[in-house]
Design a protein around this nucleic acid. Structure first.
Length: 423
RNA sequence: GGAGAGAUGCCUGAGUGGCCGAAAGGAUCAGUUUGCUAAACUGACGUACUGGCAACGGUACCGAGGGUUCGAAUCCCUCUCUCUCCGCCA
C-alpha cells in the first residue's frame, strides 16, 4: 500500500510512475487526495470537540469533589450536545477512512525508475543469458514422457487421489525432489539465511499483510470451516512473522528462508503450456525473504539475483535473467527479475524464480517498521525470491540431461540423491 | 468435542469509575561513581493521527466492536484469540 502523504506531496510523479505499470487513473488519485483532506479536517474538528468535552468532564469531577453540586449540574448540561457531535464526527471519520483505505488498496506499487516500460511479457528486457543450450537428438522427449518412461512422476495417480495438477512423485523422482529441497536449503543457509518452518495455512490478516487478500482471493485454496488459506508461497507466512513489528536497525539485514509446499488454484489457466510439471496446483519451493534498510534494498535485490543465479549455475542449467516491464510486474512489486531456465525438449524458457523488491509497499500494510538510533520508526523494505521452485527445475533437468543411458544427475546433487543416473 | 480461566506498555505485573497513557520491578539507552568488571545512583524510555517553523500542544489507543455515564483499563453486551483440565489423536 502506498503512503497517502507521499501521494499528496508527489501527485505528478506518482501518476507518471504508475503509467509505467499501465495504470492511468488520475481520477482515483485525486479522489484519494481529497478523501485524505476530508479525513484530516474531520479529525481536526473531532479532536477539538473531544478536547472540550474532556475538559468539561474534568470540571464536573472537580466541582463534585468540592461539593458544588448545582454548578456541576450546569456544566453537565453543556456536554449533551458535544456528545452527539463526537459520535457523528466519529462515524464520519470512520467512513472516510474506510473509503480512503479501499481506494488506496487499488493503487499498485510504484515501479522503480529503472523498470522498463511495456505491457506484455514480450517487452521484458533480457539482462543476461548464461550457459549452453544442449543439442538434443531428434527423438528427445518432453519431461512428462520421460517421467512416465522412468516411472518417477505419475500424473494419472495424482488425478485419481486429488485431481489434475497434483502429481505423485515416485522412487527416484521422490528422492530427487527431496534432494533438491535439501540442496536449496543448505545453500541458503550457507548464504546467511535462517531456516524457518512456517505453517502452510494462514489466516486472513496474514493474507492481507502480504497483499494476496483481497486482491487474489480466488487464487488461494480456502478452508471455509476454519477460515484459513493454504499458502500460495512461503513468502506469506515468513513475511508475516514481522507483521506489526518494530525491529531494531542493527538487526538488518534480516534474512529468512523456508521450504514449503505451495498451493495455487490457477483458476482459468489451461492449454498446452500447462502440461506436465509446467503449472501445478501443488508444488514445492524454497523461498528467501529479506527485510532491509530502505537505503540498500536495491543492492540487496542484486545480491539476491546473483544468489539465485549461483544455484542455476551449480545445477548446470542454461538460464536467462529478465527485468520485467511495468505491465508484467506484480501489483505489489517495485522491481522484479525473473529467472528462466531453458527446457530443451519443449524448446522454451520456463520461469523458475522471481526476485522482487517491494520497497515499503508490503511493509506499509504489515506495519513493519524499524527504529534507528534517533527519530521515529520508519517503514522497512521487504524483498523475496524463489530459490528455487522445484517442478520446472525438475522439468529442465529431465529434458536437458536425457541420454541413451538415462537421466544424468548434476554433480552438485549427487551427494543428496545418492545416485548419478535415473534409468 | 466438554468444562474452566484469562487477554494491560519490550517483558513480568499492579490497577474495579475522575488525581491512569497507566504503579512497581526487569530489560534497554544516556550519564555519575569506579584502575577494569560488577554493583550503586541519576535521568530517559509506547504507538498512531493531528496543529505548529519550532518550542510545545490536542486526540485516540489497556484483545476487537458496541453500550451505560458529565467522565470507562475499570461497569454491561457481543465477538475473537490464548491458556488449563478432560476426551480423542499424529
Amino acid at each position: 500500500m502506498l503512503q497517502v502523504n507521499y501521494i499528496r506531496e508527489n501527485r505528478e510523479e506518482v501518476l507518471n510512475r504508475l503509467a509505467v505499470k499501465n495504470f492511468k487513473q488520475p481520477g482515483l488519485l485525486d479522489e484519494i487526495i481529497s478523501l485524505d483532506e476530508e479525513r484530516r479536517q474531520t479529525q481536526n474538528i473531532l479532536d477539538n470537540t473531544a478536547a472540550e468535552s474532556n475538559s468539561l468532564a474534568k470540571q464536573v469531577g472537580d466541582l463534585m469533589r468540592q461539593g458544588k453540586k448545582e454548578e456541576a449540574e450546569i456544566v453537565k448540561a453543556k456536554t449533551g450536545g458535544l456528545k452527539e457531535q463526537i459520535k457523528t464526527l466519529g462515524d464520519k471519520l470512520a467512513e472516510v477512512e474506510s473509503k480512503l483505505q479501499t481506494q488506496l488498496l487499488q493503487l499498485p506499487n510504484l515501479p522503480h525508475t529503472s523498470v522498463p516500460k511495456g505491457k506484455t511479457p514480450e517487452e521484458n528486457v533480457t539482462v543476461l543469458e548464461n550457459g549452453e543450450k544442449p543439442n538434443l537428438p531428434e527423438n528427445a522427449l518432453p519431461h512428462w514422457e520421460l517421467a512416465s518412461k522412468y516411472d518417477i512422476i505419475d500424473f494419472e495417480l495424482g488425478n485419481k487421489i486429488a485431481g489434475a495438477g497434483f502429481p505423485v512423485y515416485k522412487g527416484k523422482g521422490a528422492k530427487l525432489q527431496r534432494a533438491l529441497i535439501n540442496y536449496f536449503l543448505d545453500s541458503a543457509g550457507n548464504a546467511g539465511y535462517r531456516e524457518i518452518q512456517p505453517p502452510i495455512v494462514v489466516n486472513e490478516a496474514s493474507g492481507f499483510g502480504t497483499g494476496q487478500l483481497p486482491d487474489k482471493e480466488g487464487q488461494m485454496y480456502h478452508i471455509g470451516i476454519d477460515n484459513l488459506y493454504l499458502i500460495p508461497t512461503a513468502e506469506v507466512p515468513v513475511t508475516n512473522l514481522y507483521r506489526d513489528v518494530i525491529v531494531k536497525e542493527e538487526e538488518f539485514p534480516i534474512k529468512n528462508c523456508a521450504y514449503t509446499p505451495c498451493f495455487r488454484r490457477e483458476a482459468g489457466s489451461y492449454g498446452a503450456h500447462v502440461r506436465g510439471l509446467n503449472r501445478l496446483h501443488q508444488f514445492d519451493k524454497v523461498e528467501i525473504v529479506q527485510i532491509v534498510h530502505p537505503d540498500n534494498s536495491y543492492q540487496v535485490l542484486e545480491e539476491m539475483s546473483t544468489y539465485v543465479q549461483s544455484l542455476l549455475k551449480e545445477l548446470e542449467l542454461p538460464y536467462r535473467v529478465l527485468s520485467l516491464c511495468g505491465g508484467d510486474m506484480s501489483f505489489t512489486s517495485a522491481k522484479t527479475y525473473d529467472m528462466e531456465v531453458w527446457c530443451a525438449a519443449q524448446a522454451r524458457w520456463l520461469e523458475v524464480s522471481s526476485v522482487s523488491n517491494f520497497e515499503n509497499y508490503q511493509a506499509n500494510r504489515l506495519k513493519l517498521r524499524f527504529k534507528g538510533s534517533e527519530g521515529k520508526p520508519q517503514l522497512a523494505h521487504t524483498l523475496n525470491g524463489s530459490a528455487l521452485a522445484l517442478p520446472r527445475i525438475l522439468a529442465s533437468l529431465l529434458e536437458n540431461n536425457q541420454t541413451e543411458a538415462g537421466i544424468k544427475i548434476p554433480k552438485v546433487l549427487i551427494p543428496y540423491t545418492g545416485f548419478e543416473l535415473i534409468n
